[in-house]
């Protein structure tokens, strides 16, 4: 188990997340894909931290976790607002800012 294998795994998870971000039309599916991508980044940070012996990577991974949780909370609040105002959470139906 060397560092390159873990980096490859994280890159694969990130790309799966990018795929989900591009294909999902339901906003909750998009949030799930963003979670996947943030998770891949966390794996990278922890792997580098274990490799170098410095706790800095784990500190950053904890910051990323907290910021992601805050993002999910605000995102779900916006989704509930969107659902209440137009009865659905498909992202291509919300186009008010385009006009």
């Amino acid at each position: 188990m060397n560092l390159s294998a873990i980096l490859l795994l994280a890159a694969g998870l990130f790309c799966v997340g990018v795929y989900g971000l591009l294909t999902r039309r339901n906003a909750i599916g998009i949030l799930l894909s963003v979670e996947l991508m943030a998770n891949a980044v966390n794996i990278n940070l922890v792997a580098f931290s274990a490799n170098s012996g410095s706790p800095l990577g784990q500190v950053f991974a904890l910051f990323t976790m907290a910021v992601t949780v805050a993002e999910v909370v605000v995102g779900l609040a916006i989704l509930i607002l969107l659902f209440r105002s137009r009865g659905g959470v498909l992202v291509d139906a919300a186009q008010e800012l385009k006009r």
């Binding site: 795994l9 694969g12 996947l36």
Partner: peptide, 10 residues
């Protein structure tokens, strides 16, 4: 397992 589950998620 991680990759399979991630693909199922999307």
């Amino acid at each position: 397992v991680l990759m399979l589950a991630a693909i199922r998620v999307v």
